[in-house]
């Protein structure tokens, strides 16, 4: 597709366009397409004289339903399409841009398809899953627009393994520096250096709150001791190392939090999509089974 005779002529234009993200792609081409699609769906909804009331089984309902299901399958194909990065008119970026805006248009198409008839049934389940997937997608697009710059500024040109290695380096120094200390102090130092920097709880990952942080506890213990007269030079060294460990840990945790915020939606978006396709299958088959 990229090998059109005009490819060279368009190179300049493309070079400029390439700096735009998928949201602004081609001067918002897909938001315009999506708006036109919504407008047509809405006009049709109000123009169609559906008796006795608008519902999914009317001829207009079937039209919207067919459009909706085709759109859903196409949107889901991004999961396969994204594995092949290509350029040109149907570049991955164009595809992603269309995915976002047509996905939003699906809210209008599918809601009109329901005719605002909801209940505790498989049909509304499919609708709810679809809305969940779209809502998580909106979140995903929003965090992709906002978070990556925060993420890289937090990193300060460190690689992720350097972040971990930095903490390990401090841990090794802690191990040496704490040698002269009595057991009650080596215990808290050990607890701090043995603590994994990565939280195992989703809540800590997302909120960045670590109420049981061993490093913070050790630091508090040493800061209390540091004020007493009989503290040796090792106390001060360990305390400094603990302060550094805490600072590095905080940065790493900010990083994991940002990454968690950046990734969490996919845990709804992807399984939600697969569940939606299953519910959609049940919805369509059941409608024709009890035709």
């Amino acid at each position: 597709m990229a090998s059109t005779p005009h490819a060279g002529m368009r190179a300049d234009h493309k070079a400029v366009a390439d700096h735009d993200g998928f949201l602004r792609h081609a001067r918002f081409r897909w938001i315009k397409v999506a708006l036109v699609v919504c407008l047509i769906a809405l006009i049709g909804y109000f123009a169609a004289d559906v008796k006795p009331r608008p519902y999914g089984g009317s001829w207009y309902g079937y039209t919207l339903g067919t459009a909706g299901v085709l759109l859903i399958f196409w949107l889901a194909l991004l999961g396969i399409r994204k594995r092949a990065m290509t350029a040109g008119r149907w570049s991955l970026k164009a595809w992603t841009s269309a995915h976002v805006y047509l996905g939003l248009a699906l809210v209008v198409i599918a809601t009109l398809h329901t005719g605002f008839q909801f209940g505790w049934n498989v049909h509304t389940l499919a609708y709810a899953l679809m809305m969940l997937v779209i809502a998580s997608g909106i979140y995903g697009a929003a965090v992709y627009a906002v978070l990556p710059s925060t993420l890289s500024s937090n990193r300060e040109q460190l690689t992720l393994s350097q972040m971990v290695e930095g903490i390990r380096a401090i841990d090794r120094q802690l191990h040496e520096a704490a040698q002269p200390l009595t057991h009650s102090y080596t215990e808290v130092v050990l607890a701090a250096s043995e603590e994994s920097p990565f939280a195992t709880s989703l809540w800590s990952r997302l909120s960045g709150k670590y109420p049981h942080c061993a490093t913070a506890r050790a630091l508090t213990a040493f800061q209390n001791v540091a004020s007493s007269p009989d503290t040796g030079p090792a106390f001060a060294t360990v305390e400094t190392l603990l302060i550094r460990r805490k600072a590095q840990l905080d940065r790493l945790r900010r990083q994991t939090r940002l990454k968690a915020l950046l990734e969490i939606w996919l845990y709804l978006h992807i399984p939600g999509t697969i569940a939606l396709i299953a519910a959609l299958t049940a919805h369509i088959v059941s409608v024709f089974y009890y035709w």
Binding site: V122, V164, F198, S201, K259, E263, L266
Partner: peptide, 29 residues
């Protein structure tokens, strides 16, 4: 890298997808 990502604390997306899809298809179809 895996430790930084959520994959460490979340159930696998693939398995969640399979379980949800099979549950829905089983119950409702």
């Amino acid at each position: 890298k895996r430790s930084f990502s959520l994959a460490g604390v979340m159930p696998s997306r693939r398995w969640t997808s399979w379980i949800a899809a099979l549950l829905i298809l089983g119950l409702f179809l």
